[in-house]
């Protein structure tokens, strides 16, 4: 029986986690502003196909990633207009956005199945990557992976230490109070929604340009829903979202390796465990005292209408 090489496991888990981490950190900002966008899956897959199309046609993975972000943000703009100006129900609109995104992406990507995208280069030179253990783990990735970690740090810093973050949180906690203070609640929320869409789209593009890498219909296969669960799991804290995403990705990567190494543990249970944790967190959150303790934005999912 062969053991499992921890280095390749860690490398694999970072790669596997990055799409959901990107989507989760974007959704975290959206929810911090008091908006619940359940369309993450739809924005991811539109990002995946937009990024793929542009990368194929330009030959540049970087333009592809940019296009993925733009595609995701574009789709989220529909959600923003519907929920912020037309005051539609956020849950229903978000679900519809996912269905719309899945359909739209298969239409857009019809001519792009079975093609290989341009290769995304690793950031650091081979010499650094050849350092035992630390090389592959710290230096063996592409730019997007480092960007995702920087994004987590940036969101954490912005939410905690900047005026902009304070305003965003105020809008998410009590939109009426923020409005009374003169902040443009709707404008701020739309910016947050667009940011969330861009992050989800970038995550999708990472899936189609690096992880798989090719375009196939429905390729996100539920990653967007996991990202939503991670936001709750992380109780709206950026660094916890990073841990949550790596935990989800790590368990997925680990269970495949346990099978490949023929170590007989019931993989079903391992597969279930992150979802079980999420359910437990959701149960705790549904009691009011727990909700406050867990940091949920007080105005999450509530419609804002500036009356009077």
């Amino acid at each position: 029986m062969m053991g499992i090489d921890p280095v390749t496991l860690i490398v694999a888990l970072i790669g596997a986690s990055t799409p959901i981490l990107l989507a989760a950190i974007g959704e975290l900002v959206v929810e911090k502003s008091g908006v619940l966008n359940l369309g993450v899956e739809g924005m991811m897959i539109v990002g995946a196909v937009s990024g793929f199309i542009i990368a194929i046609n330009t030959g540049s993975p970087w333009l592809g990633f940019a296009a993925g972000a733009v595609g995701g943000a574009g789709l989220s703009l529909i959600f923003a207009l519907l929920t912020q100006y037309l005051l539609s129900n956020q849950v229903a609109t978000g679900l519809a956005l996912t269905l719309f995104g899945l359909g739209l992406s298969s239409l857009m990507g019809e001519a792009y199945t079975g093609i290989n995208p341009p290769l995304t280069p690793d950031l650091f030179p081979q010499a650094l990557r050849d350092i035992p253990v630390a090389g592959p783990i710290l230096f063996g990735h592409d730019l997007v992976i480092y960007l995702s970690v920087l994004l987590v740090a940036g969101v954490w810093y912005a939410l905690r230490h900047t005026r902009m973050g304070l305003i965003l949180r105020a809008v998410g906690e009590s939109h009426d109070a923020a409005h009374a203070l003169g902040y443009k609640v709707i404008r701020i929320r739309i910016c947050a929604i667009l940011f969330g869409g861009a992050c989800a789209g970038l995550g999708g593009a990472y899936l189609s340009l690096v992880r798989v890498p090719s375009w196939t219909e429905g390729m996100t296969a539920g990653a967007g829903w996991i990202a939503l669960a991670i936001v709750v799991f992380a109780s709206w804290k950026p660094w916890r979202a990073l841990i949550g995403a790596y935990l989800f990705g790590g368990i997925a990567a680990l269970q495949l390796r346990l099978q490949a190494a023929e170590i007989n543990i019931p993989v079903m249970f391992l597969d279930m465990s992150p979802y079980l944790v999420t359910i437990i967190v959701l149960v705790i959150i549904s009691s009011d005292r727990g909700r406050a303790a867990l940091n949920a934005p007080a105005a999450l999912g509530k419609v804002f209408h500036a009356s009077g």
Binding site: D5, L9, A12, R211, S214, A221, L256, R257
Partner: peptide
């Protein structure tokens, strides 16, 4: 490696990588 899906490109890619790593 059992992936419990007929079609999930990311999961299938991960499974292939896990097998190659082994």
């Amino acid at each position: 490696v059992w992936v419990y899906t007929w079609f999930d490109p990311a999961q299938e890619a991960d499974a292939a990588q896990a097998l190659i790593d082994q």
